[in-house]
Design a protein around this nucleic acid. Structure first.
Length: 301
DNA sequence: GGGTTAACCTGCGGGC
DNA sequence: TGCCCGCAGGTTAACC
């Protein structure tokens, strides 16, 4: 389940594996993979073929590859998406959705890019840039704004421009539960179910704590833990529970060995030994320690 | 306009 | 063995 650390791991792989290449062939194997490209698969292909990829960028869980046309290929991995850089003769994956071939004269490794997605919650689209063109600086890095389809989400907490004070005040203005607020990508992007549970365990804070009762120092501490857990997860190459999340080389992350709450139902809390509980939350799960993270009297879901 | 819910989708594991 | 159901969950449209 890719969240920010997993997407960042993929982005780094794309930076090494596809930036600077010129796309010569695009094969869309499943129309749903480009459903957010409203003009359809043929238009998607036409806008990418012949274009040079200038960079690999990320905000929250969105990835994009700026092109020399001024547009960008925007990707979201959804629940099960993978972007793999593999030899062209490698057999097609069972859920291969889109394949990109590169001009050999621009492609030292001789590999191709594949978008593989079992559950098809993810997808790709070609999107114009807003807030500046997808230019290129002297060192070859892409510069400029963000794709229009990414502009609606908040900065992620690893972005140097992230405004901590604005987050703290925005969080305390909400009238909802703290975990629901953490998952709201328009308040803070990149946080998903796994890292929300981990950060809340570290504070510690119950997931249904009303945001408008959070003291500023607590809100600030929560943000610090979100940053810490994401930074540690990136260093470990992301979290993986099964083969659904992998880097561009197909390698699984190791951070699941470091999780304290998520997926640890009935296992002892690392702080106090009380068995971790699982609660139903928004048609999914929330894991927490009943003793360290007691349910507030006034809970919000 | 902010908060909340359901739908989208496939594979897998458990129960019968 | 095979069928059915629940579960995994990020995003967004639709509803309140």
């Amino acid at each position: 389940m890719p969240e920010l650390p997993e997407v960042e791991t993929v982005r780094r792989g794309l930076e090494r594996g596809v930036v600077g290449r010129t796309v010569v062939a695009v094969d869309v194997h499943h129309p749903r993979a480009v459903r957010r490209h409203e003009a359809g698969a043929d238009d998607f292909r036409a806008r990418v073929e012949g274009r040079r990829l200038l960079g690999a960028r990320r905000r929250g869980k969105y990835l994009w590859l700026p092109m020399d046309s001024g547009e960008a290929v925007v990707g979201h991995l959804g629940m099960s998406g993978q972007l793999l850089v593999v030899p062209p003769d490698k057999p097609a994956e069972a859920h291969l959705r889109v394949r990109f071939g590169f001009d050999p004269s621009t492609n030292p490794g001789g590999r191709e890019l594949r978008f593989v997605d079992q559950r098809t919650f993810g997808g790709l689209a070609v999107v114009p840039m807003v807030g500046g063109p997808a230019g290129q600086s002297a060192d070859g890095l892409a510069t400029g704004g963000v794709p229009a389809s990414v502009a609606h989400i908040a900065l992620d907490p690893l972005d140097p421009a992230f405004d901590d004070d604005a987050f703290v005040e925005g969080l305390r203005r909400r009238r909802t539960g703290v975990k629901r607020a953490l998952l709201d990508q328009t308040l803070i992007s990149g946080v998903g179910n796994i890292y929300a549970d981990e950060a809340l365990w570290r504070v510690p804070l119950h997931w249904a704590r009303p945001t408008d009762t959070l003291p500023r120092p607590t809100a600030r501490a929560l943000l610090g833990h979100v940053r810490d857990v994401m930074t540690e997860a990136i260093a470990a190459g992301g979290t993986s529970f099964d083969a659904l999340y992998v880097s561009v080389n197909g390698v699984s992350g190791l951070f699941d060995r470091s999780l304290s709450a998520y997926g640890r139902r009935d296992e002892p809390c690392a702080r106090c030994g009380t068995p971790i509980r699982r609660d139903a939350f928004m048609n999914r799960s929330s894991f927490s320690c009943p003793r360290c993270q007691p349910r507030p009297r006034r809970a919000r879901y």
